[in-house]
C-alpha cells in the first residue's frame, strides 16, 4: 500500500514544446492517412471532384466575365462642340473633361479630322460628299470611361456633368446599347452569383458529410483516446492536420484535372463555339484564383474535420 507508484509521472518530455508536439501530430496524421488508405482516398477524391466542378464553373465564369468586360470598352461618350475651339481652349477643355470622375481617356477630333474620317469611311462613294465642307461636321471629344463608370446611372450622371461644360452642345453615348448591355451584365452576374452560391453550398454539404462519415468510421479511436486520458486538443490535432492534408491534396488533384480538361477540351472551345473569335480560345484561371482553390480545399478539409469532430469527442 505504501509502495511508491510513480509510473504515471513522465520520465521525459521529448514531445513537449511547440515543434515537438507539432511534429508528433504531423507524423500521427501521416500515419493515420497511411493506415486508413481507403477512407482517406474517398475523402480526397470527393474534395477533388467537388472542387473540380467548382473550379470548372469558375473558369467559365471568369472567361465570360472577361469577355463581357471587353465588350464594355465600346461604351463611349462623344461630346460635340458648337464651334471648333481654338487650340489653347482645346487643352483647357480637355483638362476639365479629364477632371470629371470616370474619365479614362479623351481624344479631340477636330473638324478637319472628322472630315478625313468621313472621307475614308465613304471611300469609293465620294460623290456623296459633294458640297460637304468641314464646317458642316462639328469638332468633338471622344471620351472613354473607366470600368466602374460604365453602368446606366453612372453614364447618365457623367453626361449631365459633361453638358454643363461651356461650348459642348450635344452629347451622344448610345443610350439604348448601354442600357441593354448593362441589363445583360447584371443578369449574368446575378446568375453567376446564384449558381456559384448553389455550387458552394453543394460542395460544402458533400465534403462535410464525407468527412463526417470517415470520422464516424473512426469513432472508436476517438473514444479510446479520450478514455486513456488524451485531451480534446490531443485527439483533434492529428485529425485536423489530416483534414488540411486531404483538402490540399484534393485541391491540387482538382487543379490538375482542370488543367487536363482545359488542354483537352476547353482551350479551343472559344473558337469552336464562336463566342469570341478575336481571342485564342478560353484562358486558364489566373494565379490568384488557383491559390484561392487550394486555400478553399484546405479550408474545406479543416472546417469539415473540425465540425465533424465536435460530434464524436466526449472528453
Amino acid at each position: 500500500m505504501s509502495k511508491a507508484n510513480k509510473g504515471a509521472v513522465r520520465p521525459k518530455l521529448e514531445q513537449e514544446g511547440f515543434f515537438g508536439r507539432l511534429s508528433y501530430f504531423f507524423s500521427r496524421a501521416v500515419a493515420n492517412l497511411r493506415q486508413n488508405v481507403f477512407v482517406s482516398a474517398v475523402t480526397v477524391g470527393t474534395i477533388a471532384l467537388a472542387l473540380l466542378i467548382a473550379s470548372l464553373f469558375l473558369l467559365v465564369y471568369v472567361n465570360l466575365d472577361g469577355m463581357a468586360q471587353g465588350w464594355s470598352d465600346k461604351v463611349q461618350v462623344t461630346a460635340y462642340f458648337d464651334q471648333e475651339p481654338a487650340p489653347l481652349a482645346v487643352a483647357a477643355l480637355k483638362g476639365r473633361v479629364q477632371a470629371l470622375p470616370g474619365t479614362a481617356k479623351v481624344i479631340f477630333v477636330s473638324q478637319a479630322e472628322a472630315e478625313k474620317r468621313l472621307r475614308s469611311r465613304l471611300k469609293g462613294q465620294e460623290s456623296l460628299l459633294e458640297g460637304i465642307t468641314q464646317e458642316v461636321l462639328p469638332a468633338s471629344f471622344e471620351i472613354r470611361l473607366d470600368r466602374e463608370h460604365r453602368d446606366n446611372e453612372s453614364v447618365a450622371a457623367y453626361v449631365r456633368k459633361l453638358k454643363q461644360i461651356q461650348g459642348i452642345s450635344e452629347v451622344q453615348y448610345g443610350e439604348e446599347w448601354v442600357q441593354r448591355f448593362n441589363s445583360f451584365m447584371n443578369l449574368f452576374r446575378l446568375m453567376g452569383g446564384l449558381l456559384g452560391a448553389f455550387l458552394t453550398i453543394t460542395v460544402l454539404f458533400i465534403v462535410s458529410n464525407t468527412i463526417k462519415l470517415t470520422i464516424y468510421a473512426r469513432k472508436e479511436e476517438l473514444e479510446l483516446l479520450g478514455l486513456v486520458g488524451a485531451t480534446r486538443f490531443f485527439i483533434k490535432a492529428p485529425f485536423l492536420i489530416e483534414g488540411v492534408l486531404q483538402g490540399a491534396a484534393g485541391a491540387v488533384i482538382s487543379l490538375l484535372a482542370l488543367l487536363a480538361c482545359y488542354y483537352t477540351f476547353l482551350k479551343n472551345a472559344g473558337d469552336f463555339l464562336g463566342i469570341n473569335p478575336a481571342s485564342a480560345g478560353l484562358s486558364f484561371l489566373p494565379a490568384t484564383h488557383l491559390a484561392g482553390v487550394v486555400a478553399g480545399g484546405i479550408l474545406l478539409g479543416f472546417i469539415g474535420s473540425a465540425t465533424s469532430l465536435k460530434r464524436f469527442i466526449n472528453v
Binding site: 504515471a8 513522465r10 520520465p11 521529448e14 514531445q15 493506415q35 472508436e220 479511436e221 483516446l225 486520458g229
Partner: peptide, 24 residues
Amino acid sequence: KLLPNRTVLENVAITLEVLGWGKR
C-alpha cells in the same frame, strides 16, 4: 477496444503518447 488499423506496438504506445513521452 484495440484499434484494428494499428499494430500491437502502436496500440500499447497510445497510453504513453498521450502522456507526452518521447519516441525512444
